[in-house]
């Protein structure tokens, strides 16, 4: 790859490619033309080649593999690897997922190399230079950004915004990039642990009744458990209720909880923090009830009611007989 073009950083965990990698391919299409049309996907992994075929989706010009000395993601190794890729390949735009792994190293790369940078962007396009859109004031506003004076711009893209491109089948050429990563690791992996094990698997539920901060009191939980039961729904919650220790992790929907795709997602008293939306936006039908007409949840909901959730809950009980 010559100077310019788009460099996508794919992401894998425990031997599996994460879906955001292919979403980034779709995102890259929005800007590729402006930077010469070339799109390269880089994979950093102990066995990076194993993902080469999958990431070489339609529209990908080249797959770059970087072999990591560690079995699992290690922020400092990844940082050095991405720095090396940017120094060698000199892309005009770099796209990574706005994921937990990225949070550990991508901003450091931008800082050290003095790149143009924006995190958690929800749209990218080209207008005499890269442009991006992201939320401001907790997503109540949108900010349009440009990156004047930067020859390379690094963006982390919010997962779930772009449709994932179909996985490739080996059409794109793969090339190994040699970067010396020995001795760069500064943390030691101990183990992975699943903290969201519980008696229910909310990811399998067809109908989720989800409650959030709006329920105010721990006392009110039984009321909604009862409502969910009457409704034939499974009860799920947003993060604050888990943080408060009111409900177990297993019930949490969101980036740090479960990603769910039920047929119906009924959100009561959930304002819709970015992290929560990431976990439920692909539900078939989303119904939201919230007192705040500006709540971001209404941005993804198919049906919305600005109302007191307790009053609605009472009426639901009544309507269900």
């Amino acid at each position: 790859m010559s100077d310019g073009g788009v460099l996508i950083l794919a992401e894998a965990r425990q031997g599996e490619l994460r879906e955001v990698s292919l979403e980034l391919v779709s995102a890259a299409r929005e800007v590729a033309a402006g930077v010469g049309g070339r799109v390269a996907v880089a994979v950093i992994d102990q066995q990076a080649e194993r993902f080469a075929n999958a990431v070489g989706a339609d529209g990908v010009s080249e797959v770059l593999t970087v072999t990591s000395p560690t079995e699992h993601f290690e922020a400092h190794v990844w940082q050095r690897a991405l720095e090396g890729l940017i120094e060698r390949e000199r892309p005009a735009i770099v796209l990574a997922g706005h994921t937990i792994d990225s949070l550990g190293f991508v901003p450091a790369v931008a800082a050290r190399l003095g790149l143009g940078f924006a995190a958690d962007v929800t749209a990218v396009w080209w207008a005499q230079g890269p442009r991006a859109r992201r939320g401001a004031y907790g997503d109540k506003l949108h900010a349009e950004l440009d990156f004047p004076g930067k020859s390379c711009t690094l963006l982390t893209v919010r997962p779930g915004i772009f449709a994932a491109a179909p996985a490739g089948s080996g059409a794109a050429a793969a090339r190994a990039v040699e970067i010396d990563l020995d001795g760069t690791a500064r943390t030691e992996h101990v183990e992975f642990r699943d903290v969201a094990i519980g008696d229910v698997d909310i990811t399998k539920a067809e109908f989720l009744l989800s409650i959030g901060r709006g329920i105010e009191d721990k006392d009110n939980i039984p009321r909604f458990e009862h409502l969910a039961e009457r409704f034939g729904a499974t009860l799920s919650v947003s993060r604050p209720l888990v943080d408060a220790g009111w409900m177990p992790n297993a019930r949490q929907v969101g980036q740090s909880g479960k990603t769910v795709k039920p047929r119906v997602y009924l959100a009561l008293g959930i304002s819709g923090a970015v992290q929560h939306l990431a976990g439920m936006r692909s539900a078939d039908t989303i119904i939201a009830v919230n007192t705040d007409p500006e709540a971001p949840i209404f941005g993804v909901a198919h049906f919305g009611a600005v109302a007191d959730l307790f009053e609605v809950a009472d009426e639901l009980e009544r309507a269900l007989g």
Partner: peptide, 12 residues
Amino acid sequence: ELESGLVEVVRI
């Protein structure tokens, strides 16, 4: 804290 209820324990 990782996505989907997974946690990685690391030493630093």
